[in-house]
Computed example of a mutant assay.
Amino acid sequence: MIKTSIEAVIFDWAGTTVDFGSRAPMGAFVKLFQSEGIEMTISQARIPMGINKWDHINALLHLPEIQSQWLQIHGKTHSNADVDRLLEIFVPMNKVSIRECGQLIPGVAELTKTLRERHIKIGSTTGYTKELLDILLPIAKEQGYEADALSYSGDTPLGRPSAQMMYRCAEQLGFDNPLSFIKVDDTEPGIEEGKAFGCWTVGVAVSGNALGLSYEDLIALPQKDSIHLIESARKTMQAMQPDYVIDSVADLLSVIDQINRRLDLGEKPN
């Protein structure tokens, strides 16, 4: 019997490997809708997080509190052409916010080095389009993070929560056993993507969408407030039922070791 162990980790981007708090997309979505005369909160903008940007805009337009403002302004419900137009406006806005929020999350560069030493490949799936990812890739590489395989919004017929981007990464890496993969993400569509692929899933609670604060803002909070927010973010992530929940990718190595021990015992993901 051939022994199975972790051969690849597929990461999300915003909130998982870069942009602590996943702020870049949120700020751009709020600005986008403000440009249309629609008031939207950051919390509302986060609701569909994890899916591709066209679907994200479409989902926001279906929120009752956003839809009512749209109807008041336009006198009719939105169309696919409206979503197309809004996406064209959104992309340049998001390019600016990606440059502003492209810092690696603490621990990512060190984790990358260790994964390379262990001969574990690195892949990524994202709701970003290739145009947006092309902005982010050199920023991340300069800081010490680079993926061996990439799949992005529009790269496959279906995005998250389908497994198509995961299969695309697996094809690029030359691995075909989902049990040897870990999907790490800070959103429910990203976790569901990993489940659909049949691999191990790890939810990131504190550095991503579930908490939604920058690292600087988080550490500036009074301790009782930060403890409350962190516990709430962990519960939010646990409700998505990944195999493991960690605060950030800085905690991933011990999870890889645990999964390898479970694989030795013949265990499978939830």
Rank of each mutant, 00 (worst) to 15 (best):
I135E: 12
D134S: 01
G107W: 01
K183F: 00
N177F: 00
I139F: 03
L136Q: 06
I135F: 07
L32H: 05
Q72D: 13
S68W: 10
Q238M: 15
G75D: 05
V18N: 09
A149G: 06
L213F: 10
L87H: 14
P92L: 01
E146W: 03
A196W: 05
Y145N: 02
R262L: 03
A140R: 07
L132V: 01
Y244N: 08
K224V: 13
T156L: 03
A45C: 03
G15T: 04
T114N: 11
L61K: 10
A250N: 14
F20G: 04
I105M: 07
L32I: 04
S35K: 10
H119R: 11
S43W: 15
G75W: 09
Y244V: 07
K76T: 12
Q69W: 07
V184D: 02
I227G: 09
L252T: 07
L132G: 00
Q172P: 09
L221Y: 13
S254T: 12
G50M: 00
I246C: 02
I246K: 01
N270C: 14
N80E: 15
N80M: 14
Q258M: 12
D176M: 04
L213W: 07
E146K: 03
E39F: 11
W200K: 03
P178Q: 04
A24N: 08
W13S: 08
R160G: 00
I122A: 01
I42N: 12
T201D: 04
D82Y: 08
M1A: 10
A24V: 06
V202M: 02
A170P: 13
N177R: 05
I89A: 10
Q143C: 01
K235A: 15
G203N: 05
S68L: 09
L60E: 03
E7T: 10
G198T: 06
Q241L: 12
W54N: 15
R99P: 07
Y152V: 05
H74Y: 15
V206W: 07
M165C: 05
D247A: 02
S162F: 14
R116F: 14
G27A: 05
D84Q: 13
Q172G: 04
Q69F: 04
I256R: 02
S43G: 08
E131T: 15
A233L: 01
H119P: 11
L133E: 11
C169L: 00
D225Q: 10
M49D: 06
F175C: 11
G198E: 08
L86P: 04
K130R: 13
